[in-house]
Design a binder for these strands. Structure first.
Length: 495
RNA sequence: GGCGCUAUCGUCUAGGGGUUAGGACGGAAGAUUCUCAAUCUUCAAACCCGGGUUCGAUUCCCGGUAGCGCUACCA
């Protein structure tokens, strides 16, 4: 367990980081990855993770989305130490920051109407000029502006970008990034209704909450110079910026609803184990030191994580690899860990297993988990292990039960099992093999046929393990009713 | 359009002035024969392009191209 702490001027200071989603949608994959990196970073250094809800966009923010984000965090197992803070409840902080900025001359009132600005912008781009705010109100006499404001005229507050020079910052993953101030525009700090915009609220909050490292998506790189300027105007200590590359869809465009599931909760619904999702996400844009395996539990992830391992290029979300991680985690997890997750799946599928004793459940899960790719399998292709009403896989029936002779022998075999006392694995195997030899039959044909008759699937664990899991009665009954399977396996036809 | 960032197998990536350019997922083939979505073995698969620096560039520099991001009284 690494408890390395930062040493600043001889003092040890644990980092303070934050995850600051805006509740205009569910927790999506990109946000989850940002949250995860912040969490890993905080835990690695024994720091503090703060959750802040950026709900300053009243039109698009909803409380359901806040709930959804919290739920997503909980499912992922990302815990925070402070918050959630809500920006809508901290407006005083932003207004006083804006007031200070006006006092110092770093910001000014702007009386241009939204419509007027819109008009000028379209005109500018039509004429091929950059659609930048031209600073109309910046030229206003401050006393005059104050008078108009006091007279009740609606005014926004804009930041006055220095006219010349460059603004740069040292990014922990991208290195030095520099922008010419002439490229920046006098952005709005406070809307005319007095509500703060993103730039003001983020830096006022990050300063107030003493955030030491800002780990966020690379889509914010272009916003950073404005924020750097704000830090300077506020005479605040500059944090370390660490921008992480974006997550792309298979077509290499930014991951969006178009690509299907973007909400992390949809991965829960698809039977992904949260640990697997976390591991997968951690490796999207971050690489552990050379020689480490890719399947990494929380402890290892926390121990190994660092900003230096973050890559600079965007990463494609690879569903096949997620599924592989899921398979690995299901296999490596104990049946105890899996049981509650599987019970959720049963609930969702409206399925209530006939046998409830825990030991049987655990050993059956143990038997099945090496072949599971999703938690959903336990309510899907493994269904026959838990309930009697299952739909046989037509392809499996076709492959192993097509031969009538095999079906007749299985019925006969059922009687052998019915009259046998030994239902152990070796016992059931001996009965079947002796029976096959007696009939001059290859044991394999009967084994494969029996597997389909018992499970409805061509893919399942070793037949005799299946038999002991199912128990004598079920085995005998299902073998006897092998003919029924033929009818049940008729695939639904579309007329 | 302007500005910024990025560029190694299909994907995630390692590496780095001289390497058989490494690993993982996925793919293919084979083995196993009690099925495979299990297991084992093997194989195919990459340095965006053009200049420059250099004895030597995939690596360093410049340019191009492409992708992504930002360009709001959204965040």
């Amino acid at each position: 367990m690494s408890s390395t702490q930062f040493s600043v001027a001889g003092q040890s200071t644990a980092p303070r980081v934050r995850f600051a989603p805006s509740p205009t949608g569910y927790l999506h994959v990109g946000g989850a990855r940002t949250a995860l990196f912040n969490w890993l970073f905080a835990r690695h250094f024994g720091g503090t993770l703060i959750l802040r809800i950026e709900d300053t966009d009243l039109e698009r923010s909803t409380s359901e989305m806040v709930e959804g984000i919290l739920q997503g965090m909980q499912w992922l197992g990302i815990t925070w130490d402070e918050g959630p803070y809500y920006q809508t409840q901290r407006t005083d902080l932003y207004r006083s920051a804006a007031a200070r900025l006006i006092d110092s001359g770093a910001a000014y009132y702007c009386f241009c109407s939204k419509e007027e600005l819109e008009r000028r912008r379209t005109k500018a781009s039509a004429e091929g000029r950059p659609p930048k705010y031209e600073g109309t109100c910046r030229k206003l006499n401050p006393a005059e502006a104050l008078r108009r404001k006091a007279a009740g005229e609606a005014a926004a507050v804009r930041f006055a970008i220095p006219e010349a020079g460059n603004t740069s910052f040292e990014d922990a993953v991208f290195g030095k990034i520099e922008f010419a101030n002439s490229e920046l525009e006098d952005f709005v700090l406070l809307r005319s209704d007095g509500s703060p915009t993103y730039h003001l609220s983020v830096v006022a909050d990050d300063v107030d909450l003493k955030i030491s490292h800002i780990i966020r998506g690379a889509d914010h790189i272009s916003n950073t110079p404005k924020q750097v300027l704000l830090y300077q105007a506020l005479a605040a200590t500059m944090p370390t910026f660490a921008h992480v590359p974006l997550i792309l869809g298979p077509d290499k465009t930014r991951l969006s609803k178009r690509h299907g599931a973007t909400s992390v909760m949809s991965y829960r619904d698809e039977g992904i184990v949260p640990e697997a999702f976390r591991n997968f996400l951690a490796l999207l844009g971050w690489t552990p030191p050379e020689g480490t395996p890719e399947v990494l539990g929380d402890k290892e992830l926390i121990r190994l994580f660092g900003l230096d391992g973050i890559s600079r290029s965007n990463a494609v979300f690879d569903r096949a690899k997620l599924d592989w991680f899921n398979t690995e985690y299901i296999r490596a997890s104990s049946a105890e860990r899996l049981l509650p997750l599987i019970e959720e799946e049963w609930k969702k599928a409206g399925l209530s297993p006939a046998r409830h004793d825990r030991d049987w459940m655990l050993s059956t899960i143990e038997l099945l988990k090496p072949r599971a790719r999703s938690l959903k399998d336990f309510a899907g292709s493994f269904r026959a292990f838990f309930v009697d009403d299952f739909d046989p896989d037509p392809a499996a029936v076709e492959k192993f039960l097509k031969d009538e002779n095999v079906r007749q022998l299985l019925i006969e075999l059922a009687n052998r099992y019915a009259s046998s006392d030994d239902f152990s694995e070796p016992g059931t195997e001996k009965i079947l093999r002796d029976f096959a030899a007696e009939k001059g039959m290859k044991a394999g044909a009967l084994i494969n046929g029996a597997r389909v008759a018992l499970t409805g699937q061509a893919v399942a664990p070793s037949l005799f393990a299946v038999m002991t899991a199912l128990g004598k009665n079920t085995v005998v009954n299902r073998l006897k009713k092998v003919e029924d399977l033929l009818n049940r396996a008729i695939p639904a036809r579309t007329p």
